[in-house]
Amino acid sequence: MTTSEKFNDKRSLLYRCYQQQPAALTAEIDPSQLGLHDFSVKLRYGFRGPQAHAVLSAAQITVPSAANSLCTTPSGELVLRLSNSEYWLLHPKASGQQTLLESQSTEQCYSLFCQDSHAWLVLTGPNIARIMAKLCAVDLREIVFPHGAIAQTSVARVNAVIAHHCFGESAVFSILSDSASASYLWDAIQDAMQEFKD
């Protein structure tokens, strides 16, 4: 695996939206405040296959015991389990260093290309469940969708993985969705957030 020396400018598909909205490019976010944040350039991997569990365990990564749930590593990485044999690792603090061709598959543990196939949006603030109720038919209220829960569903008619986890003390939703639909979904969520602003 060689890392490029010349090219290191991987771009979120929301990159152009940000050029028009520089305020959204803040590095630090306040997860207790209403906000939608683009984490698409942050590092993430996906693995699937009969050996995926074994490969992750060998790397000292604890995985959730059931499908559609997640756990957090001591260093703040998120480990999502999407089926009996599919796991995604999200690194909220690291930028993408590797791309799909570089994360190696091994026999029966196949790397998925979620760094590029999926945008990663993070919805924060006190009303995240109500905002999502304007976009999504799954009940995401805390009582039925607690921390650690994952819903694979349709958000504004786009397929998405919704993961309920914490940044610090604050509950947030990570929304992983088709990267090509990212700017559409960004606008749809912003529109739904409008009534909760100011």
Binding site: R11, L13, R16, K134, L135, A156, R157, V158, D178, A180, S181, S183, Y184, L185, A188, D191, A192
Partner: peptide
């Protein structure tokens, strides 16, 4: 209402 008509853009759209 607020109708949802998803559109997909390629990375070269702009």
């Amino acid at each position: 209402g607020r109708s949802f008509n998803p559109v997909r853009f390629t990375s070269m759209h702009h």
